[in-house]
Amino acid sequence: MQLSYVSDGPDKVVDIRGRMPAARRRQVAPNGVIGTLLFVMAEVMLFAGFISAHAVAKTTALSGWPPPNQPRLPVEETAVNTAALLLSGAALAYAYRVYLRDVRRARVPFLIALLLGCFFVAFQGVEWLSLLREGLTVTSSTHGAFFYLIVGCHALHAVAALIVLALQYRQLLLDRLSPGAFAGAQVFWFFVVGMWPVLYWKVYF
């Protein structure tokens, strides 16, 4: 990750927006990046809690896991979806690298990342609808409850992150996106992308 505050000698830091000649305060990283990183750490622990609860609940299920009379989770379709999300993360990483050299050339990869993310959420919604139709609901078993709880919680994070990315895409088109904001959003999107394979492995198999 790059500094968004251009380092001008070891002790002098200038804000990229040129608005404030910041005092000689050394910044470890842009505020937005540190704030997002800390937030992501708390979020990782939230999902760790879900995963542990899921692992324990597996062993106390009344009639096996997954219950025999309940629909199976769509492992293969979701594998495709997982690939889409990972590609989206890679596209955003590429967009950021390009952005640091030439802001305008970052528009296309950024848009690809955004669209792939939207595809992931939409595909998940379609999957949910078919699962609901087949009889897997929140109250049908702890298996179903955990599926909707964990995957739904991840989807909420994905949607929030996509909203932020969409807003930033608008800024990017207007050439007003600051590197610090981009880096912060990138950290959060990497969290959403990186969390998913773990959840996929833990919940679907």
Binding site: L46, F47, G49, V138, T142, L149
Partner: peptide, 30 residues
């Protein structure tokens, strides 16, 4: 920050048990 995550996870599960009828903490339902 590092310890609160699992409790928030538990609180969401408890809230679901109370309101929408899941059985995360109910031994009779697994």
């Amino acid at each position: 920050m590092l310890s609160v995550g699992p409790l928030i996870a538990g609180a969401i599960m408890l809230l679901f048990d109370q309101t929408i009828g899941t059985g995360f903490f109910d031994p009779a339902r697994g």
